[in-house]
Computed example of a mutant assay.
Amino acid sequence: MVLKLLFLMVLFLNANSLSMPETFNGFLVPEEDYLKWLKHMGSFKHSLFQKAKNKFKPCLTMKVSSKPRSGEFPTVQKAINSLPVINNCRVVISISAGTYREKVEIPATTAYVTLQGAGADKTIIEWGDTADRVENGRPLGTFGSATFAVNSPYFIAKDITFKNKAPLPPSGALGKQAVALRISADTAAFISCKFIGAQDTLYDHIGRHYFKKCYIEGSVDFIFGNGLSLYEDCHLHAVTTTFGALTAQKRQSFLEETGFSFVNCRITGSGALYLGRAWGNFSRVVFAYTYMDKIITPRGWYDWGDKSREMTVFFGQYKCSGPGADFGGRVAWSRELTEQQARPFISIGFIDGHEWLLN
């Protein structure tokens, strides 16, 4: 009975979204429809404000191979599609070495999925969509451009590269957002993964997320969204030839428990890079114990062309090093944090990790 009700709800909501498409600058915005769905189901409030409980002991293991044998799957999406509509136990999908040219999406009800690669340089999932690509008569938009999209909670990925192979767009080009991975669910962890792209590489959309020993490459806003996320021991690499920005965090209210924290990370690359742009009125980003190469512009941060945001954003750094870490030239509305101010941002407590991350 529950499955039938869920199925009817999805059909009803899909019908509404098809009959009343929303657009922005000529692009469809399926993201807004998705957020309405989350609000309707109560998942967003439930996942962020009630205690999370993860499951680590696997009930099922599966294998994906580019040269599949009996019982193995040839693509990641086929393995995902074989799972129950509502999945309530940990499923481990082992992906052998190879380049998998496919676009993958994990549905909202398929929770507790672990993807285990053979190494980030050996297991690669890639596609090449951009926001302006037209499919079924409509542009995909940034939300729909993702090579890999996760809509379900308690997702784990290890030792995999997620890549959007769309070329680096020229400066000022429109519609060239090209997401490698979009995480639109709570309580997700990425360990020793790589995210390769140019504009808008990693869509850290909503929910609590943990990135450990990951490599993230891009040009403009290549880590963006409204997640509550901790990046620990990660390598952040810019590939812009002009000006770029590492983050674009979209916290819109003082009451929102979202923000990005980078701890013990390393920033390298080319061009001139802002640490972040204030996508949201209350954007919140902190860098701690992070090495910053000379590519970091002295001002460090950009207000998105809205001076009022300088009064409400929270941009800070704590005990960072390297030629780009000098706080002397930073904008006056950023902060050099004290130990007390930095403390909430530099442990897994920032993302309530003691509830769902520790095994």
Rank of each mutant, 00 (worst) to 15 (best):
T147S: 14
Y210W: 10
M292W: 02
N151V: 01
H46V: 05
G300A: 03
I223H: 03
N88H: 10
V313F: 00
Y100S: 11
Y318I: 11
N151P: 00
F224A: 09
I125P: 09
V29H: 02
S145I: 05
I191L: 13
S94R: 11
A15K: 14
Y289A: 09
I216P: 06
I216Y: 09
A111P: 01
G322P: 09
T110V: 13
F7C: 10
F12V: 06
V29A: 04
T61I: 00
N88L: 13
A166Q: 05
L48R: 12
G322V: 09
I296A: 07
V85Q: 06
F327L: 08
T110I: 08
Q340G: 02
H237E: 14
P68Y: 08
I351D: 11
A180C: 09
P58D: 04
Y112D: 02
G117P: 07
F327K: 10
Q50P: 00
K4P: 01
L181N: 00
G259W: 02
M1F: 03
F44Q: 10
A146L: 03
M41C: 05
V2C: 06
F162E: 08
R138E: 13
R330F: 02
I196Q: 06
A146S: 15
I86H: 07
V113A: 03
A79W: 11
Y215R: 13
N264S: 15
H209V: 07
P21I: 13
D221M: 07
S308M: 12
Y112K: 02
F211E: 06
E126W: 00
G322C: 10
T23M: 08
D33F: 10
I196V: 13
G329Q: 08
K4I: 07
L228C: 12
F7R: 13
G305S: 09
